[in-house]
Amino acid sequence: MNPRRKKRLLITSFLAVALSLAVGLVLFALQQNIDLFYTPTEIIEGKKETGIKPEVGQRLRIGGMVVQGSVKRNPESLKVSFDLVDNGGGIVTVFFDGILPDLFREGQGIVAQGHLLNATQINASEVLAKHDEEYMPPEVSEALVGMDNFKANNK
């Protein structure tokens, strides 16, 4: 092999090794950090698309409407719990320790990130309610279709 070819071979093989390493790493990191989105009904009955129920301890995202009158606060700390509901009728309780966002309100659609404690309870690490009054994540608005009445009555 002439030196030029040798050099090219070296560079190419270096590239190939680096690339496969990178791909492996990325896939590994991805696998651990993909969070599926569920509605309360889907948590109880399984995903609409696949019918698979989340396992206890699984990281996930949940979106739904905060049930009127369900917000309970711990008087000593910032611990809070509330129920989420969607148009499928399932109700799931979310536990959270921290500061709720400005637009968090009963009767409002929110998204929470956390892990499943048991069949109907979630421990949230983050609660998101978007900043715009009219704004609602598409997943949540889908899950709340037909609930306008319910929402209006509560207001």
Partner: peptide, 19 residues
């Protein structure tokens, strides 16, 4: 692809960028 909504968390990016 009809596999449902997912989100990719911050730890994914943080870990890879650290490397």
């Amino acid at each position: 692809m009809g596999l449902g909504s997912i989100s990719i968390g911050e730890p994914f990016f943080n870990r890879i960028f650290t490397v």
